[in-house]
Design a protein around this nucleic acid. Sequence first.
DNA 1: TATGTATATATGTCTATACATATTGAAATA
DNA 2: TATTTCAATATGTATAGACATATATACATA
Lengths: 242, 242
Amino acid sequence: MKIILDYNSPLPLYAQIEEQIRQAIQTPEYKNGKKIPNEVSLSKQLGISRSTLRQAINKLVFEGLLIRKKGVGTVAANKAVNFKLNNWLSFTQEMKMLGIEVKNYELHVQWEKPNEELCQFFNTTSGARILKLERLRGKPEHPFVFFISYFNPRIGLTGNEDYSRPLYDILEKDFNTIVKLSKEEITAVIADEFLADKLQIKIGDPILKRKRFVFDPGSRPVEWNIGYYRADSFVYTIEAER
Amino acid sequence: MKIILDYNSPLPLYAQIEEQIRQAIQTPEYKNGKKIPNEVSLSKQLGISRSTLRQAINKLVFEGLLIRKKGVGTVAANKAVNFKLNNWLSFTQEMKMLGIEVKNYELHVQWEKPNEELCQFFNTTSGARILKLERLRGKPEHPFVFFISYFNPRIGLTGNEDYSRPLYDILEKDFNTIVKLSKEEITAVIADEFLADKLQIKIGDPILKRKRFVFDPGSRPVEWNIGYYRADSFVYTIEAER
DNA sequence: TATGTATATATGTCTATACATATTGAAATA
DNA sequence: TATTTCAATATGTATAGACATATATACATA
């Protein structure tokens, strides 16, 4: 990895390094999994302090371009995502942050035979039923999101839990299951008869669909979740600087 | 601001501080604009190094919960967003990152009278026409996104620029305009006759709508942009750990 | 061969400090 | 009064270093 520092540049050192690493990891060797040089030797090689180098790497890790592992090293992320975050919130937390008051309209708890996608996700067979949770939530005025969640049977959920409690609290306190990683896909769909009825909109109206896969610290699947949001009642906002 | 450190906790100091600041800034006083204590005094007060404190604050700044200003101080962000990033990409860059090959199908350059929203955004009157750029782009097989962009007249774009070049390159090199901040809103709409025709889908099909406001380093508006993406050809992905 | 222990490797956390520089407010000057 | 200058304030950048700890590998032993 070739990094050149220009001490006359108005750009701080860490910014120069960050940009050059960003370019370097686009090459096939790093895309194929090669580790970037370790922090101690790279900082020596560049003649800078390790803290300065870490500042550059920190940012690329925040952006999801690099994956760091303690004791192992740092590699380019192999799965391109629009972006990667270092925190994620449950629905309730997210609405609280956005200042949106939430009312619960419906809750359905049942057991269902998993389809092919769910079997693959949870690595189960279609024989045993798995827990399915459906919720209709919204503002005091009207519902605006319909959730469908399925849970990994290995967690041990019975269906008798108190679902007025925060879900991830239940998982953590009652089932020793901590959630860590969330992978989310956002796309658009149109309301069929079922969703139109739940969300009190017209058939054919636009819906923002957010699909989320939740994993525990060992990367084992915990939850598969879809949220169907009324497009007129929820907008996803992102702010970014460069 | 009351922060308590537990030296017996498995959580690193910066993580404890981060969480407590996260809670503290939800109170009305900080929501009303009060500055958090400055780094030097707060680190002294907590009996920790300033670098450790900065690590906690860095993360909250990354997440968009705090806004730091050199020489001034640090306040809670007053506009909640789903999240905040420290980098953003042009469409071309984004597709390259996602490994999607892009083909340009159509380009339209024209001047239009701005509606109320555009007048407010660019702080202009509806008298003078502003530059409107429309592009149809997609994969080699079919188009999947239709873009509409309007530009701030103060930039000086003539409409005669070579739009095969990267747009932000043109702005930077020919007009000394650097883009820095992007605010984006994602939502869902359904295809009307126009978009259905452009994107080669059926009227009423779902579309992922991404609206972007672009600003320069002085927070002056540069571009107002909407991208209409075929829902079946583009999914927005996010990965997050906690 | 499988398991346990020791060692090497690499990132994670934290300390302490120095100097640079943007911003703001106060004081001086025209 | 308006403008300029200067000092105080607060974050930004960078250095140097120490120790902790997760991971991988090598070696010893059953």
